[in-house]
């Protein structure tokens, strides 16, 4: 029996799990901005001094009149973006995850979310993967604090291709967005021709014993876990929950009904992020055992990303163990 059943349309053809193409998610953001710049004169970009780091430098060089430098001033950046939106522009405000959410939280709350401004907040360098920079730069709370804001949409693409598509798609919705991505190279494996369906989860693999609901880089980690679990004859559904808000309630409930237990995986605190969002849906609609993979109410530290994934319990090995725990809890 084959314990791994892949849905081809969401993944690239001839995907080599052992040797995937590596590409930066932030580069997907930067490339999409340049593409948007060509077709939409209203797209503008704000720079908070880290334009090279977040890959907005390509847009800056291509469309200098539509790039506004505000210095290292994230609170002002969010307000300026709201003002640009009022003037009919589609502003992209981008910096590192913590400084795109925690630092300017009140500005986002009042001037963007409450005011329903068409501002796209794009955060690079999220999660543990900024590794050596340490805890100050490891954004592990950003999804939670954006998710609790009314009117805010939250997207966590998994790779370069999906980041690119999500950035293009978010300009079609006249609402605030938070889009989260990463600094390092990571596997690029989603089908570039698959439509990005905002608010609709992608089921990448079918399975019957358990469902993994993962976001961002943890989707790839989960794919590695599936390989391990198949050796133990455990069949797992894998859902890429790229839209954290509005979350795909139907996909969550169906997964609980079909497979009886859930494991959530995120490079983020367990509290408040994807895990919290999934548990909220299940508690209301279809209670089922849930195991959480993510930061356990702790800050990170310096180290290589792989070392941190191991130490903080969010590697593929940990995911596989969590799946087994979840299955044991099924009645």
């Amino acid at each position: 029996m084959n314990y791994i059943h892949k849905f081809e349309n969401f993944l690239i053809e001839d995907l080599d799990l052992a040797k995937p193409e590596l590409k930066e998610t932030r580069r997907g953001f930067g490339d999409a901005l340049v593409e948007l710049g060509k077709s939409n004169p209203d797209v503008v970009v704000l720079g908070g001094d880290v334009s090279g780091s977040v890959r907005t430098d390509m847009f800056r060089d291509a469309y200098p009149d539509r790039f506004f430098s505000v210095g290292i001033a994230e609170q002002d950046m969010m307000g300026t973006a709201a003002g640009l939106a009022l003037a009919g522009k589609i502003p992209f405000a981008s910096t590192y995850g913590e400084f795109a959410t925690g630092r300017p939280f009140d500005q986002i709350r009042q001037s963007i979310a409450y005011s329903v401004m068409n501002v796209k907040i794009c955060a690079s360098h999220c999660g543990f993967t900024v590794g050596p920079d340490g805890a100050t730069h490891q954004s592990l709370e950003d999804v939670g604090i954006m998710r609790i804001l009314p009117h805010m949409n939250v997207i966590t693409p998994v790779d370069y291709n999906q980041t690119y598509r999500a950035i293009i798609e978010c300009t079609k919705v006249n609402e605030p967005f938070y889009i989260r991505f990463y600094r390092d190279n990571s596997p690029n494996y989603t089908n570039p021709n698959a439509p990005f369906k905002f608010g609709k989860a992608d089921t990448l693999y079918e399975g019957s014993d358990c469902t993994i609901i993962a976001s961002g880089l943890m989707v790839w980690e989960s794919m590695m876990a599936l390989e391990m679990l198949a050796k133990d004859k455990i069949s797992v559904r894998l859902i890429n929950m790229h839209t954290i808000k509005p979350i795909d309630r139907d996909a969550i409930v169906k997964a609980a009904k079909d497979t009886g237990c859930i494991v959530t995986c995120e490079d983020h605190q367990k509290i408040g992020g994807l895990g919290g969002a999934v548990a909220e849906v299940l508690a209301q609609e279809y209670p089922a055992p849930v195991e959480f993979i993510g930061a356990s109410d702790t800050f990170g530290e310096s180290g290589k990303a792989a070392e941190l994934y191991e130490k903080y319990g969010i590697s593929s090995r940990h995911i596989a163990e969590a799946v087994k725990r979840a299955i044991k809890r099924k009645k």
């Binding site: 609170q75 002002d76 300026t80 973006a81 709201a82 003002g83 003037a87 502003p91 001037s111």
Partner: peptide, 13 residues
């Protein structure tokens, strides 16, 4: 403290 940033953004736009 938030109004001036918005005003600047609108002025730029």
């Amino acid at each position: 403290g938030q109004g001036l940033s918005i005003a600047v953004g609108t002025a730029l736009g």
